[in-house]
Design a protein around this nucleic acid. Sequence first.
DNA 1: GCGACAG
DNA 2: ATCTTGTCGC
Length: 251
Amino acid sequence: MKMSHLGVEKLWIIMNDAKEPSSSISNFSNEFQSSQQMDWLRVQDSLKGKLITEDDFKWRLPTREKEGSCEILKYVGGVDLSFSKDDSSIACGTLVVLDLTTNKVVYEDSSIVRLHIPYLPGFLAFREAPVLLELLDKMKNNAHCFYPQLLMVDGNGLLHPRGFGLACHIGVLADLPTVGVGKNLHHVDGLTQSTAMRSSEGSLKPIFISVGHRISLASAIAIVRMTCKFRVPEPIRQADIRSRERLRNNQ
DNA sequence: GCGACAG
DNA sequence: ATCTTGTCGC
């Protein structure tokens, strides 16, 4: 209802300037899209109220010294979706958990689904989050001992037009520390904090790290660094590889 | 006016 | 996201 919100005004401008619909069908379709997007803006705005952008966890990062009896970060999750080349509405969502001490995948689960929500820049979470949250939920309900202490997400966090990308969305709804990892830069004017970094010596092309939820940018970068064997941090890379694989052997 | 716009 | 093989190098 709050039409005065910045994001809403901006969206209206974009929509009014959009290509003129020539038929009443596309008029109707556009209006449907608009009201849907306004709902989504309200959801993003509301969830953003719960966002925590500083370190908020009981563990600490693994270091060289072996001091104290504090819980140490060991299980890092990664999520990703792959799509069928034949039918772009068929997707495979995958969750993996990596053990930082061995660098091995200790948990893997995936789910093949049909997506009904289209991809719209700025609203990726409404398309991709449901499958991934379900995978997390399933694992948590089973009280699995490898349930991740932190989750890396294939998509941005604060680096988002309204400062609430997929990584924030999942983090808040799963109440989990999350880090956003973008492979491409999303054009955002504003003061969203994020970092472009060359993760491995091998690639010139950077990745874009941003805060998802319950973590600071400094900690997010440190953790990404220690999980980057290649350009994309290992938890996400494994989720990516395995979701592709599953899609191949299942469709 | 044109372009830019995670996956 | 997806369309796509070989190839250069550690």
